[in-house]
Simulated assay, not measured.
Amino acid sequence: MSHFHDHSLPEPGHLRTRLAQAGLRATRQRLLILESLLLLPGHPTADDVHRRVASQEPSLSLGTVYKALDSFVAAGLTRRVASAEGSCRRYDADCSAHHHLFCTDTQEIIDFRDPELDTLIQGFFEARGLQNFQAHSFSLHITGSKLAGEKIIK
């Protein structure tokens, strides 16, 4: 699943294909919402997506954006990511295996990948043998503060 890190405009045909592969009809509204989700930096909220889409389609309601985003989550096109307090839902168009660092000062959510950490977590749970539970995936949500001037290695 590709993610447009450079925030360039995705090809309309590519968006239609992604929706079709997820089993969703490629309506104009869904295309606009998916495009916005892919182009907005970071992990946008439904409000962020709605603001961007409303500039092109003023009649599109926030409720429609939520419904579309929920259908994208159900279809595996995006993931829901909670803020540290869990008060607002944010969305991540990158569905590859990764973790999130949440900065309580800036409210920024930063993607974090570490194959060594993943191996440690898998080994830990294999050794524990969770009763009546089969883990399929995992994602850590780590809360803290970015240090001024420090670059986070993703």
Score class of each variant (00 low, 15 high):
residue 4 F to T: 11
residue 4 F to P: 05
residue 5 H to W: 12
residue 5 H to V: 09
residue 7 H to E: 03
residue 7 H to S: 09
residue 7 H to C: 02
residue 7 H to V: 01
residue 7 H to Y: 05
residue 9 L to I: 15
residue 11 E to Q: 08
residue 13 G to M: 06
residue 17 T to M: 14
residue 19 L to Y: 08
residue 21 Q to L: 14
residue 23 G to W: 03
residue 25 R to K: 06
residue 26 A to Q: 05
residue 27 T to D: 08
residue 27 T to R: 07
residue 28 R to P: 04
residue 29 Q to S: 03
residue 34 L to K: 02
residue 35 E to S: 06
residue 38 L to M: 12
residue 39 L to H: 03
residue 39 L to R: 15
residue 40 L to V: 11
residue 40 L to F: 12
residue 41 P to D: 11
residue 41 P to L: 09
residue 42 G to C: 04
residue 42 G to Q: 09
residue 43 H to E: 07
residue 43 H to P: 04
residue 43 H to L: 12
residue 44 P to C: 09
residue 46 A to H: 06
residue 47 D to M: 14
residue 47 D to C: 06
residue 47 D to A: 07
residue 48 D to C: 13
residue 50 H to P: 03
residue 53 V to K: 08
residue 54 A to Y: 05
residue 55 S to L: 12
residue 55 S to D: 15
residue 58 P to A: 09
residue 60 L to M: 12
residue 60 L to A: 13
residue 61 S to D: 10
residue 62 L to K: 10
residue 63 G to S: 15
residue 63 G to Y: 13
residue 65 V to H: 07
residue 66 Y to D: 08
residue 67 K to Y: 12
residue 67 K to S: 15
residue 68 A to K: 06
residue 68 A to W: 09
residue 68 A to S: 14
residue 70 D to E: 14
residue 71 S to K: 12
residue 74 A to M: 09
residue 74 A to G: 10
residue 75 A to H: 03
residue 76 G to K: 06
residue 76 G to L: 14
residue 78 T to S: 08
residue 78 T to N: 05
residue 80 R to G: 00
residue 80 R to F: 08
residue 85 E to H: 01
residue 86 G to P: 02
residue 88 C to Y: 09
residue 89 R to L: 10
residue 90 R to D: 01
residue 91 Y to F: 06
residue 91 Y to E: 00
residue 92 D to G: 01
residue 92 D to T: 00
residue 93 A to Q: 05
residue 94 D to C: 11
residue 94 D to K: 08
residue 95 C to L: 14
residue 95 C to Q: 04
residue 98 H to S: 07
residue 98 H to K: 13
residue 99 H to M: 02
residue 100 H to V: 00
residue 102 F to C: 01
residue 102 F to D: 00
residue 102 F to Y: 02
residue 105 D to M: 09
residue 105 D to G: 02
residue 106 T to G: 01
residue 108 E to F: 02
residue 111 D to R: 11
residue 111 D to N: 03
residue 112 F to C: 01
residue 114 D to A: 03
residue 116 E to C: 06
residue 117 L to K: 02
residue 117 L to N: 06
residue 119 T to I: 06
residue 122 Q to M: 10
residue 127 A to K: 05
residue 127 A to D: 14
residue 129 G to D: 07
residue 129 G to M: 12
residue 132 N to R: 13
residue 132 N to P: 03
residue 134 Q to P: 02
residue 135 A to N: 02
residue 136 H to G: 07
residue 136 H to K: 07
residue 136 H to W: 11
residue 136 H to L: 11
residue 138 F to S: 01
residue 139 S to W: 09
residue 141 H to W: 06
residue 141 H to E: 02
residue 144 G to W: 00
residue 145 S to R: 12
residue 145 S to C: 10
residue 146 K to R: 15
residue 146 K to Q: 14
residue 147 L to G: 10
residue 148 A to M: 14
residue 149 G to I: 10
residue 149 G to V: 12
residue 150 E to G: 07
residue 151 K to V: 14
residue 151 K to D: 03
residue 151 K to G: 04
residue 152 I to A: 00
